[in-house]
């Protein structure tokens, strides 16, 4: 992928992510037997938030929300520009760091608990992502995203267990049930995003859409050079995690970390070992 395509894609990623989010709200409503909001609902929210009077706790907290948006945007560009996959993953950590430090920086119990849980989310899914970067390297022979996208191999065939593991950790990244402890709207009312309002909340809200694009592009990589399969994978992943979101209740953070560490990571490692054995 050239820099220009990546740049344009990154620039429009909030739009893409907004559509995904709008579709998700409809799909979720239909799954619950409701009609649901219009497809453009996220954009209505976006423009409405633009018009609100902003109130802030203190300036540091407020601009950390904006930094979260910029950081996520940059992380997405790093991923899309075809550079190193591991570095793109760690840039994602960097962008989360802004949200977490912002969440910690106010004396709100909900925000601090949420930020702590956000870190635990990271502890849960981050090793899995590093392992999948390694696995993709083993299959395609490169860490460069552009190389993976032009590889003749379809990593999915070699990495079925790892793909299942990543699929199950998708809710942890996008903060959906069963792994939505960091947001937990009924419990801690949005966690680190609770104290943002008006335009500053808008930044956090938009950053979440960009994270959708980030996460789904990661799924896309599992199809390697076969881009049609990649699109199918994204659609499958989308419906799968919406289904998961609707049929499961929230687990607590210990269960979440335990599930990732004791079930998903061993699953991924098994896959890695099998492929290493098969290759040697």
């Amino acid at each position: 992928m050239s820099y220009w395509t990546a740049f344009i894609l990154t620039l429009f990623s909030p739009v893409i992510g907004g559509f995904i989010y709008g579709l998700e709200r409809i799909v979720r409503a239909r799954m619950q037997g409701r009609v649901g909001p219009p497809l453009l609902q996220p954009f209505y929210d976006f423009f409405k938030l633009m018009d609100k009077r902003s109130i802030i706790i203190h300036s540091f907290h407020a601009f950390m929300g904006v930094m979260y948006l910029i950081g996520t945007w940059f992380a997405l560009f790093v991923l899309l520009s075809g550079g190193d996959l591991l570095i793109a993953i760690f840039f994602h950590v960097l962008s989360l760091a802004f949200l977490v430090v912002g969440g910690f920086s106010v004396r709100s119990p909900y925000s601090v608990i949420g930020a702590m849980r956000e870190l635990l989310h990271m502890v849960a899914y981050e090793p899995l992502y590093v392992l999948s970067a390694t696995a993709l390297y083993l299959v395609t022979g490169t860490f460069q995203v552009s190389g993976i996208l032009h590889s003749e191999h379809v990593p999915l065939i070699y990495l079925p267990l790892l793909f299942i593991a990543v699929l199950f950790s998708l809710p942890a990244i996008l903060k959906k049930s069963p792994f939505d402890t960091a947001e937990a709207h009924q419990e801690i009312i949005g966690g680190p995003e609770i104290e943002y309002s008006g335009k500053f909340y808008e930044a956090v809200y938009t950053a979440k859409w960009i994270e959708y694009v980030y996460a789904f592009f990661f799924i896309f990589l599992f199809a390697g050079g076969n881009h049609i399969l990649g699109a199918l994978l994204i659609i499958f992943a989308f419906f799968f995690f919406n289904l998961l979101d609707n049929v499961t209740a929230r687990v607590n953070f210990r269960q979440m970390v335990a599930f990732h560490w004791y079930i998903l990571i061993p699953l991924a490692v098994t896959n890695l070992m099998l492929i290493a054995l098969w290759r040697s």
Partner: peptide, 16 residues
């Protein structure tokens, strides 16, 4: 009744 048809969400958070 599904008021989410009108884009209504129950945020539970006064700031938003």
């Amino acid at each position: 009744y599904d008021v989410e048809r009108f884009g209504i969400l129950n945020r539970g958070n006064p700031k938003q």
